[in-house]
């Protein structure tokens, strides 16, 4: 277990996190890495986000796609839950709304495999402070 005893330790941990990501890319035969973030606040879970996240976690390995599927908090699109954000390495993140299992399947087959956009995209309209 790493403990942070000084400011330098904090920076060291941050560097190691970034290095681990780089390592994953190399281990992935330099194929583009896919990161999927599922909005899993109470409201997202209530509208079915957990099932969608489990679907990605089960299906992606079966379909030979290496991806990091992770939960996050509220993205703010309550009107379009469940929502998720997919970032294909080196590309801009794309947000999808109203994702049910059928849509999730379509996203894997069309967007993740072929880079093709599908219905239900939420254009990002905010700036971030960091």
């Amino acid at each position: 277990m790493e403990t942070i005893k000084s400011v330098a330790d904090l920076h060291k941990i941050r560097t190691s996190i970034l290095e681990a990501k780089q390592k994953q890319i190399v281990e992935n035969d330099n194929k583009k890495l896919v990161e999927i973030k599922v909005a899993m606040a109470t409201c997202g879970i209530a509208s079915g986000a957990k099932a969608v996240m489990d679907f990605f976690r089960e299906e992606l390995p079966k379909r030979n796609i290496v991806a990091n599927v992770k939960q996050t908090g509220c993205m703010g699109y309550c009107y379009a839950e469940p929502t998720l954000e997919i970032t294909i390495q080196d590309e801009k993140p794309v947000v999808f709304g109203y994702v049910d299992l059928k849509k999730a399947d379509e996203i894997i087959e069309k967007f993740i495999k072929k880079g093709e956009l599908v219905d239900g995209i939420i254009p990002i309209k905010y700036e971030l402070a960091n």
Binding site: K37, A39, C74, K125, Y126, E127, L128, N130
Partner: peptide, 13 residues
Amino acid sequence: KQYRIALRNCGFI
């Protein structure tokens, strides 16, 4: 444009 300060990490981490 929305500007996220308090929500800067919400939905991203």
